[in-house]
């Protein structure tokens, strides 16, 4: 738990505790905007038992973490790497800050920087990618701050309340991440 690789400036990443954390997921999912920004599917309320069964089945193939604030140890969100392609060394990252009042305060960016470090220095990945909806400008800015580059968009893939939003794709290569570390040190 004290491995410095999982600790950033504002948060640390810790392994999930299914009993505790799925209850937090349930609390966060009450906020439908949180769900709508997180996923292209329809926002929904999920049965706790079925969610637990899903995680028990899938967690071995995921690298899922809770995001915990350093100052008060509060768990405020989750982040995970999944969809690994070991032939090219790539993975998808997904992140959500469930506590609305903490949006836009740098916690997500810090968590993303930690998971990039983990992905490139521990998992030996060559690229990490994500998708985000064009309505989520706060998320896009955060990913840019962490070093992600724009790689394109699928037109109008998200339909909410009769309005279409683009699905934006971003990615970062290991050499780009390494350059950022050098730039930060110098």
């Amino acid at each position: 738990m004290n491995n410095p690789i999982f600790t950033g400036q504002l948060v640390r990443l810790i392994a999930m505790n299914l009993e505790e954390d799925l209850k937090l997921f349930e609390e966060w999912n009450v906020d439908s905007e949180y769900q709508r920004l997180l996923d292209a599917g329809a926002a929904n309320r999920y049965n706790l038992k079925l969610t637990k069964e899903f995680f028990e089945k899938e967690i071995e193939g995921m690298h899922a973490f809770m995001i915990q604030k350093l100052d008060d140890d509060r768990k405020i969100g989750m982040i995970d790497l999944g969809g690994f392609n070991w032939q090219v060394g790539s993975a998808w990252v997904g992140i959500g800050i469930g506590v609305r009042e903490l949006w836009g305060k740098g916690y997500g960016t810090d968590a993303m920087r930690i998971i990039l470090r983990y992905g490139f220095t521990t998992l030996n990945l060559n690229r990490i990618q994500l998708d985000v909806f064009s309505i989520n400008q706060r998320g896009i800015s955060s990913y840019e701050k962490a070093g992600f580059k724009y790689e394109g968009r699928l037109n109008g893939n998200l339909l909410k309340a009769g309005v279409r939003y683009d699905e934006v794709f971003m990615g970062i290569l290991r050499r780009e991440w390494e350059q950022l570390q050098t730039a930060t040190v110098n």
Binding site: V88, S90, R127, Q129, G152, F169
Partner: peptide, 11 residues
């Protein structure tokens, strides 16, 4: 038309 280019993602 080309919409997304995920760099270095196929071997």
């Amino acid at each position: 038309h080309e919409a997304v280019r995920q760099r270095e993602n196929v071997y």
